[in-house]
Amino acid sequence: MISPIRKRPPFSLKSQPGFGTIAGLCFVMLYAPIITLVVYSFNAGKYISMWEGFSLQWYVAAWGNEAVQDATIRSLYLAAQASVYSTILATMAALGTTRTPPFRGLTAIYAMINQPLMVPEIVTAVALLILFAMIKSLTGIQGMVYLVIAHTAFCIPFAYLPIRARLEGMDLILETAAADLYATPWKTFWRITLPLLWPGIIAGAMLAFVISLDDVVITEFVKSSGQETLPTYMLGQLRRVITPEINAISTLLLGLSMLVVCVLFFIERKFGK
């Protein structure tokens, strides 16, 4: 930066001018709206955005509102399942499509994996509605399984891209060395590839989780009776009044995620190197 630096700081390989400032701004930008949301969840007023004093009434209301609780828990279940399944599938696919000489169908696989990204949600939603409705009426099976499949599918590219990006830069030297030392392919994978790949997998899984938690349109069309998620619950309210109950629930979700961050941080401190 062009700040008046008196004493030259020790030369750092990694620093880049201005990056720290932008990153700081980025975090401010990310959190300013969220803090507003948290503040308004303690609003005594009746509507989502008119401040009328401190109160816990919306937490009480959310506590008493089974619909909103059900929807939240269902959203979390769905996101957990979809992110685990899609990350596993995406990791396998990434291993099969990177660090390999071009083979027949590589482009096709690539296009297919990214396909959910390219089709507007509403289109997939309508098409899935038709397809799943047929299966539902034929088999009589309702269940969350349709939502899980739909979510897993559109989470795959989101999980795939970071994993692929990570893999592309990993050369094969270590794995080749392991193979030369008579490690089985399975062992090589567990001991070498997976640990190296881990950051990509984490990034991918997080993305998938967040994307699933976010989805409105596809869920709205695929859901059967009683399968409300938090986003579809909100969508239903959009036309009328969105109550600060939603703010309260969101604040609790944020709290939960913060808790996860802390636990993760603690674990890394304690057991990481």
């Binding site: 709206p33 507003t36 949301l37 955005s49 938690l213 976010d214 986003p231 969101s250 944020l254």
Partner: peptide, 30 residues
């Protein structure tokens, strides 16, 4: 440092535990 990276990364995704509509409304508020 290696051990704090996941923490920062997670901090990026925290706002996204709320859903798209909530975030959009939060922006509206700002």
């Amino acid at each position: 440092p290696r051990e704090t990276r996941s923490f920062w990364l997670f901090l990026i995704t925290v706002p996204f535990w709320t859903n798209l509509l909530i975030r959009t409304f939060a922006i509206l508020e700002v």
